[in-house]
Computed example of a mutant assay.
Amino acid sequence: MRAPSCLVAGAGFIYRRVIVKTNFVVNAEARTLQGTGASRRLRRTGKVPAIIYGGKDAAVSVSLDHNELWNHLKTEAFYSHILTLKLNGADQQVVLKDMMRHPVKDTILHLDLQRVLADVLLRMHVPLHFTGSEVAPGVKVGGGIVEHHLNQVEVECLPKDLPEFIEVDLSKLELNDIVHLSQLKLSAGVELVQLKHDNDQSVAALHLPRAAAAEEVAAAPVAADVPAANQKAPVAAAAAPAKKDAKKK
């Protein structure tokens, strides 16, 4: 049975947002030739140069199949998931740390993959999934709109605790309410990196549209003029005494 999913656009792809965890398998081949020329020749054959680093082993240069990788990248969870990398008949657990795309064609030019160890804390960027905005009182009754300030957050946790996404419930928001990082519900063992640095950023806010806010300001009652009796008269500048002409003897 296929996992339930929905579609969401972003970063040049129509992502398939998978509801349950998926096991991503990436097949790799070791490569010895390095340099710009070797990478170009590799890409012409439908391969993507990549490097695997981290853990207790030395960095290894590999190549990946572009079409297989392209299909994986259409699924949002691939970016924040522990991946199974198959190399030389052995499996390694890795995460995607960096990716370079062609500026025009949007094809994949290079990948950085980091090995993960079960007992070593990992830092990863995890997407935010916003829910409930359509039923928020500030939207339904107050006529406001929700503005997203972040679409992902950096988390620190053990590999087994890595979430595919973090849900942000907006269903209770009133007008002018703001959701901060400290209000996000995290699973056990997961911490937000920004909060460790005392940076409680705004995640989302609900406010009136600009046009409506401008009309509200324009309709506000104008303060009454201050009575003339209570106004302070401007202080007149003291006139310098005129010099008297010296009398001629």
Rank of each mutant, 00 (worst) to 15 (best):
V62G: 08
L170T: 02
K248V: 15
T22S: 05
L73A: 09
L87T: 05
E164N: 09
D57N: 12
N67Y: 05
A204L: 03
A212R: 10
H66S: 03
I19L: 15
G54V: 08
K160V: 12
K196V: 04
A50W: 11
L158S: 02
H180W: 03
L42I: 05
L111W: 08
A58E: 14
K140S: 11
L69N: 01
A246V: 15
A38S: 14
T131N: 04
D112R: 14
K47F: 02
A38K: 06
A211F: 04
V120F: 07
A213S: 09
A238H: 13
G189R: 07
K56E: 12
S80P: 07
T107Y: 02
V94K: 05
L162S: 04
D198K: 15
Q201M: 11
Q93T: 15
V20T: 13
S171D: 00
R2A: 09
A220P: 03
V120I: 12
R43P: 07
Q152I: 00
L121T: 14
A9H: 11
G12R: 11
P163C: 09
Q183F: 07
A38P: 01
G89T: 13
P221H: 02
S39K: 02
K21I: 06
R16Q: 14
V25Q: 11
T32M: 09
L64W: 06
I51G: 11
A238R: 15
A59E: 15
G189C: 02
T36F: 06
N67M: 12
A59G: 14
P159L: 07
L122Y: 09
K248R: 14
Q34M: 13
L42Q: 03
S171L: 02
D225R: 14
F165E: 06
A28V: 08
G189Q: 04
T107H: 05
A218Q: 10
L158Q: 00
L192Y: 00
Y15Q: 04
L73Q: 08
